[in-house]
């Protein structure tokens, strides 16, 4: 739970100041610091970023009555429903975070002598 919460917090703060791809750096760093297995690392990276992106996107969607979400959904998916957009956003962020988390874990493994 600890790495997940840390990732949520750090990535959210980082993105206020840094470009979107800072999520990869943060996920990498957190999973480098602490993750049990590659799968767990991917899971933490994915869910940590996906949650942040989903919550923020969903809040924006609600606050703005979905005016833009509707238009963008039409642009991307030819439908007015924002569901796909609210799914693909965390999916994409999650994928970036997950892969970086996995890379963090694997990189750490190079430096640990203890066999897993």
């Amino acid at each position: 739970m600890m790495p997940f919460l840390l990732l949520v917090l750090l990535s959210a703060v980082a993105q206020l100041f840094l470009p979107w791809w800072s999520i990869a750096l943060v996920a990498f760093g957190v999973c480098f610091w602490r993750s049990k297995t590659g799968w767990r690392a991917f899971g933490i990276g994915f869910s940590g970023i996906a949650v942040v992106w989903f919550v923020y996107a969903f809040l924006i969607h609600l606050q703005t009555d979905g005016i833009l979400t509707g238009r963008m959904a039409e642009l991307f998916f030819k439908t007015k429903t924002p569901v796909f957009l609210l799914l693909i956003t965390p999916l994409l962020g999650g994928l970036t975070g997950g892969l970086a988390g996995l890379a963090g874990h694997q990189t750490r493994a190079v430096f640990t002598t203890k066999p897993e």
């Binding site: 993105q15 979107w20 924006i60 833009l68």
Partner: peptide
């Protein structure tokens, strides 16, 4: 798609 700098930020 980033809610922090992508199109989401243009929602008013």
């Amino acid at each position: 798609l980033s809610p922090f700098e992508g199109f989401w930020q243009n929602a008013e």
